[in-house]
């Protein structure tokens, strides 16, 4: 995107957006490692540089990471899904209720929760494809609807807790060196990557994103393909709900509030065009990592700790990072526009 046409191909692939984002991520990490790590009085390493802290970052970014994965195909089709955070909350409650009040075993309750996620996504898909309503409006509606349902089920008060340790393992323990949910996240990343980059389905998401009319004229099943991205988003949101519940050990109605915005930010920061067609799962992964490291790394900086303003500063910097990335991505297009519209003499 940034590279010019006449450069050698290795240079072009080196200059692509993902590589630049990776460089930003590495620099970011090194800065936090340098300034955010210290030794306490007993001689132990504390702060950003510890392994525990790194695992913490991983644990905390898995749910938003999963939502970002779910949103990547959606945004590739030039759609949007604002309801994933609310659906996460609804699924957490449904899971807790099925297990706690319904007396179902954990695996059965989890499976049913995934089905509920698929149905939530299916509702979005149906409204968008059958009624041809804009995704922004539909998912803005279901954003409130799903959250409202979650609150109605719990009457705003009930929190499901006391999950068995076998289930909590999913969110709190390590397996083969990494937190359990990181393995799940990795698995989903590979699956979504394959779907987007190696199958005709992913191909058609891009075609639809670039030109829905062109896709229709080419005989692609546009409605079916669009449906699948929203249903998939629902299923992944349900999976994120399970991980969230396991990590905190409790299911409550406000689970995942505001997550959709972090996820969208990560996807866009990862280089996926909000207008559809362009983007990659690798980019999304880097976007998630860049935001997660920024958020957690800031909390380790002495100056930030002194100010007690980690949340505020991380919000500020995430926004700035996103705007810089978007501007950088838009500059070639802007230059082209200027050249094309130079006033005639």
């Amino acid at each position: 995107m940034i590279a010019a046409k006449n450069q050698p191909s290795w240079l072009r692939s080196l200059l692509c957006y993902e590589t630049l984002l990776l460089a930003v991520l590495v620099i970011e990490w090194l800065i936090f490692y340098h300034y955010g790590t210290s030794t306490n009085r007993r001689g132990h390493l504390v702060g950003f540089g510890t392994l525990d802290r790194q695992f913490d970052i991983l644990r905390h970014s898995c749910e938003i990471g999963l939502l970002a994965l779910a949103l990547t195909p959606v945004i590739l089709t030039a759609g949007i899904d604002l309801s994933v955070g609310s659906l996460l909350g609804l699924c957490a409650i449904v899971f807790g209720k099925l297990w706690h009040d319904g007396g179902l075993s954990i695996p059965v309750a989890a499976a049913l929760t995934l089905v509920v996620g698929a149905m939530g996504g299916g509702l979005n898909a149906g409204l968008i494809t059958a009624l041809r309503l804009p995704p922004l409006i539909v998912t803005l509606g279901t954003y409130s609807l799903f959250r409202g349902l979650a609150e109605a089920i719990t009457q705003g008060a009930v929190t499901y807790t006391d999950f068995p340790s076998g289930f909590l393992f999913l969110g709190q323990e390590r397996w083969n060196g990494l937190p359990m949910q990181a393995w799940l996240f990795l698995l989903m990343t590979v699956l979504v990557w394959i779907l987007v980059h190696r199958t005709t389905w992913g191909r058609s998401f891009r075609v639809i994103g670039f030109s829905p009319e062109g896709a229709r004229y080419a005989g692609l099943p546009v409605e079916r393909r669009v449906s699948i991205v929203y249903i998939l988003a629902g299923i992944i949101a349900a999976l994120a709900a399970l991980i969230y519940t396991a990590r905190l050990g409790q299911a409550k109605a406000d689970a995942g509030t505001g997550y959709e915005l972090f996820a969208i930010t990560a996807v866009v920061l990862g280089g996926t065009s909000i207008f559809g067609g362009r983007g990659s799962v690798t980019g999304t992964l880097l976007g998630v990592a860049a935001i997660a490291v920024l958020k957690n790394g800031l909390a380790c900086l002495p100056v930030v700790i002194r100010l007690n303003a980690a949340e505020e500063i991380s919000g500020l910097l995430t926004g700035a990072l996103l705007l810089v990335a978007l501007t950088g991505n838009a500059i070639p297009t802007f230059l082209k526009y200027l050249r094309a519209h130079r006033p005639a003499r």
Partner: peptide, 20 residues
């Protein structure tokens, strides 16, 4: 608008109707 997706390469345009 309908015949070629301008943002996609030639090979993807050519195979677009024969995915199955």
């Amino acid at each position: 608008r309908h015949g070629v997706v301008l943002e996609l390469p030639i090979d993807q345009n050519i195979t677009m109707a024969i995915h199955p």
